[in-house]
Computed example of a mutant assay.
Amino acid sequence: MRKTKGFTFPNIFPPSPKPSLTRLRPFKAYSFVPFSPLAMLDPTIITIGGIVLGIAIIECILERWGVI
Rank of each mutant, 00 (worst) to 15 (best):
K18G: 05
P34D: 09
P37F: 03
R23T: 11
I48C: 05
V52H: 04
F7T: 03
P14F: 04
P43W: 07
P15L: 01
L62A: 03
P19D: 06
M1V: 15
R25T: 13
G54N: 07
Y30E: 07
K18I: 08
P37G: 10
P14G: 00
M40W: 04
I55A: 11
P37S: 13
L53D: 04
R64D: 01
L24Q: 11
T22K: 08
L62G: 05
G50C: 01
V33G: 04
I46S: 07
V67L: 15
S16M: 04
I51R: 01
I45R: 07
N11T: 11
T4C: 04
T47D: 02
T47H: 06
I46C: 02
P37C: 03
A56P: 00
Y30I: 06
L41N: 10
A39R: 14
A56V: 12
F13D: 02
G50N: 08
P10R: 10
L41Q: 13
N11S: 14
I58S: 03
E59D: 08
T4N: 06
K28Q: 02
G50W: 03
V33C: 04
F13Q: 08
K28I: 15
S16E: 05
I48R: 03
F35D: 11
I68F: 01
K5Q: 01
G54D: 01
V67Y: 15
G50V: 07
L53C: 08
C60P: 06
R25V: 13
S16D: 04
A29R: 06
P26W: 02
T47Y: 11
G50A: 02
F9N: 08
L24S: 06
M1E: 12
R64T: 08
G49L: 15
I45D: 01
G6A: 14
V52M: 01
L53Y: 05
R64C: 04
K28R: 06
E59F: 11
P34I: 14
P26Y: 09
T22V: 12
I48E: 00
S36Q: 13
I55Y: 05
K28V: 14
P19F: 03
D42W: 04
F35L: 14
K18W: 05
L62N: 00
V33M: 07
L41M: 13
I46N: 01
M40I: 09
E63L: 02
I57G: 00
R25N: 10
F9Q: 08
L53S: 11
V67E: 13
I45Q: 05
